[in-house]
Structures are given as C-alpha cells and as structure tokens.
C-alpha cells in the first residue's frame, strides 16, 4: 500500500480513449464473456447438431442414386435457420444490457471514461461476433458433412446462405438489444424476446395469410407487408440467390421478380440490413436518454 505514495502524481490524467477504441474494448470483453458463457456453448452445439442433422437427412433417402440437390438441403436448413437463429440472437441481445443492469455492474461500467453509445455499440459488436462465430461453426461442420457425403454444394451459394444468415442474426440481435434497453430486468427482457420471436416466426406470417384471404390483398400489398418481416425478407433473399427468381413462391414471388428484377436481392438484403440498423439506432438513442442506468 505504501507504494502508492511513491507513485508520482501527474496533474492531468490520460485522456479518454478514442470512440472506436472504447467500442473495441467493450466488444472484445463482450465477445470473451460470450464465448466463455453457457448460452454460447449451448446454442453452438444445438445449431451445429441441427444443421448437420438437416444436411445429413436431406442427403439420405435418395437410394442408389447418389444425387441430392443442395436446394433440398437449403430448404431444410432454411426452416431450421428461421426457427433457431432468431431465437439465439434475440435472447442473446435481450440479456446484453438488462443483465448488467440487474447485477449492478452497468453503473460501474458507465462510471468509466466511456459513453453509453460506446457501451451499447461495443456490446452489440461483441455479441454479433460471437453469434457469427457460432453460425460459422454450425455451417462449417455441416459443409463438411456435405463434402463428405455428396458433391452437390457450390461454395458461392453456400457462402451467400451463410452471409444472409449472419445478416439475419445481426438484425435479430439488434432487436434483442433494443428489448434489453427498455427492460428493467433480464427475465422480463428474455420474456419479451421470446414473445417477439413467436410473433416474427409464426404470428406475423399466419396473420398475413389470414388477412390476404380476408381482405383479398393484391400481390403487391402482400409482398410489401411480407418483406416488413425480416424473416420473410431473409427467406426470399436466400431463394432468389439460389433460383435467380422467386417463381417458386407463386404469384407474389413472380410479381416481385418481374417488377423488381435485378434490384430484388438488393432490396431484400437492404430490408434485413435495415432491421439490423434501425432497432440498434433506436436502442442507442433510448439508452443514452435513459433517466437511470
């Protein structure tokens, strides 16, 4: 303890870190915490096992033909991704701020020379990296299975599938972080995240189906409403990437392919990207304006 008095005291302390330096520091810590945590392990194992299972199953049952379309695998993976990935990302995001607030660690972090924007962006970046890592492991192992079992996978199509899935994960993480900012307790945040997951995965699609029948919606209206759901945009983006058109999605898909043409994949990707950017921006604003930690 006596060593303190020997330390020369300077008049001015080191200035605060640069904005991105602070963000990076938080991102690194969040990433480390995430990959050491149980949820990361659990989700990674679950996603990997399911992805491998889907790839494997979609390749079996072909009998002696030795042929399997990657399209079939992708369709199976698509269903899996749309169920599991949003769940992973939403719950991971929901714990980000609310958990720290509940444990009382948030106030201590905020008392450091950092801004709230840095904290939230850093946490988002760290969690996003961890999520993408988790997805890469799942997709990587399942690509290994595909390589071992068959030849029907193209690296470009697969890379696009991985990229769009990562984008979907970023979007859902962004929504999760927004939920986390507005929730006082981490259990509440998780609850809201599950509700949002249910709404995006099932309720909105079923609702749109019902309204398209009840209100006789026109194809452009159905398309417009459908792409508001990031899950639908993601699905269409993957399909348009593999099939070059959305004809497999019936009249609505054909309408979209016909009117939007080459712009379609970009519009779909932009919609998902908007889901990644806007909720995070809103979360940042709300967090900065919060009355208490």
């Amino acid at each position: 303890m006596t060593a303190l008095t020997a330390t020369p005291i300077t008049v001015h302390a080191a200035p605060a870190r640069s904005f991105f330096g602070g963000v990076a520091a938080f991102a690194r810590r969040e990433f480390r915490d995430a990959i050491a945590s149980r949820w990361f392990l659990l989700y990674t194992i679950a996603f990997t096992v399911l992805a491998v299972g889907v790839s494997f199953l979609s390749l079996s049952g072909v009998g002696s033909h030795g042929f399997a379309g990657f399209g079939r695998t992708a369709a199976g993976l698509l269903n899996l991704i749309m169920l599991v990935v949003p769940l992973m990302a939403l719950t991971a995001g929901a714990g980000a701020i609310a958990g720290e607030r509940e444990r009382g660690t948030l106030i201590y972090l905020l008392a450091q020379p950092v801004s709230r924007t840095q904290v939230i962006l850093g946490k988002y970046a760290g969690l996003a990296t961890a999520l993408v890592c988790s997805l890469c492991i799942g997709f990587g192992v399942s690509a290994g299975v595909l390589a071992w079992r068959t030849g029907g996978v193209g690296i470009a199509a697969y890379a696009m599938l991985v990229a769009f899935t990562a984008l979907l994960a970023l979007a859902m993480l962004s929504v999760g972080v927004l939920i986390s900012v507005v929730s006082r307790r981490s259990a509440v945040a998780t609850g809201i995240a599950l509700f949002v997951w249910l709404a995006l995965v099932f309720v909105s699609d079923l609702g749109l189906m019902a309204s398209s029948i009840l209100f006789r919606l026109r194809v452009q209206e159905i398309f417009g409403l459908a792409i508001l759901n990031p899950m639908q945009s993601f699905k269409m983006a993957v399909i348009v990437n593999m099939n070059a058109s959305l004809d497999v999605l019936g009249p609505v898909g054909a309408y979209a392919s016909f009117t939007l043409g080459r712009a379609l994949p970009w519009i779909l990707a932009a919609t998902v990207a908007a889901w990644a950017v806007l909720p995070l921006a809103l979360a940042t604003i709300l967090f900065a304006r919060r009355n208490s930690p």
Partner: peptide
Amino acid sequence: RHARALVGYVPQELAFHDDARLASAMAF
C-alpha cells in the same frame, strides 16, 4: 466520457462480472 477520464470511481462494492479473472478485468 472526457470528464470521467479525470475520475477514478470506487463503488460501495465492486460490481463486475463475477466470472472474470482479476487479470482480465484489470486488462479490460
């Protein structure tokens, strides 16, 4: 952020991730 760079804050009880090791907390 810049104002807090001039401040060292000691809370009633240090609240930091319990799982973190002292070295990594310090490094952070």
